[in-house]
Simulated assay, not measured.
Amino acid sequence: MRCYWDEEDTWFYFEVDAEGWVIRQIELEGPDLTPIAAASLEEWQQAHDAGRLNEYDSRFGITAELPVSEWEGHDPQQLTAERFEEVWKTARGQIAARSS
């Protein structure tokens, strides 16, 4: 799904599991849809276990800490898995290019 936060001019894209927890999250900011985050919960946990959490957070960001059922004030738009993957691949590529 995706949601728009007009106060920050940011699109949030979410992949969630069956219980509503965010598995992957993308944040695109401004009119150019600049990727500012493309975080994976699994990667975040691996970085945490390896003691590299600060490095991961500063490069890719974090995922939402609450399941979507507890969110207030959002108006989600459904996405196909294919569309999420397209946006994910583009965002991760742009973030990786900036980090090189």
Rank of each mutant, 00 (worst) to 15 (best):
L41E: 04
G93F: 03
G30F: 11
V22R: 02
G30T: 09
D49G: 02
R52K: 14
L33Q: 10
E86V: 09
G73V: 05
P31Q: 00
I95R: 12
G51N: 14
A47C: 02
E29W: 03
E65F: 12
Y4A: 09
P76N: 04
A97Y: 08
D6Y: 07
W44P: 01
I26T: 04
P67T: 07
A47M: 06
A39G: 02
D32P: 00
R98C: 13
I23Q: 08
G73R: 14
E55L: 14
G61F: 05
F12V: 08
A18E: 15
D75W: 12
D6H: 11
H74K: 01
S100I: 15
D57H: 14
H48S: 14
T34K: 05
V16C: 06
T10M: 06
A81P: 14
E43Q: 10
E70Q: 15
T63L: 06
G51F: 09
W5K: 08
L33W: 00
A38P: 11
E15R: 13
K89Y: 00
G61Y: 02
T90N: 05
P76F: 03
A39C: 05
S100G: 04
S58W: 09
E29T: 10
V68N: 00
V22H: 03
R2N: 04
R52T: 10
S99K: 01
L79Y: 01
I23P: 00
R52S: 08
A81R: 14
P67V: 14
Q77M: 13
E15P: 04
I26R: 04
T80K: 09
A97N: 00
T10I: 13
H74E: 15
S99Y: 03
L41G: 07
W5Y: 15
W44Q: 13
C3Y: 02
L41P: 01
H48Y: 12
E42K: 10
A91H: 05
E86N: 08
E8N: 07
A81E: 15
Q78I: 11
W44G: 02
Y56M: 10
K89G: 02
W88K: 05
W44C: 08
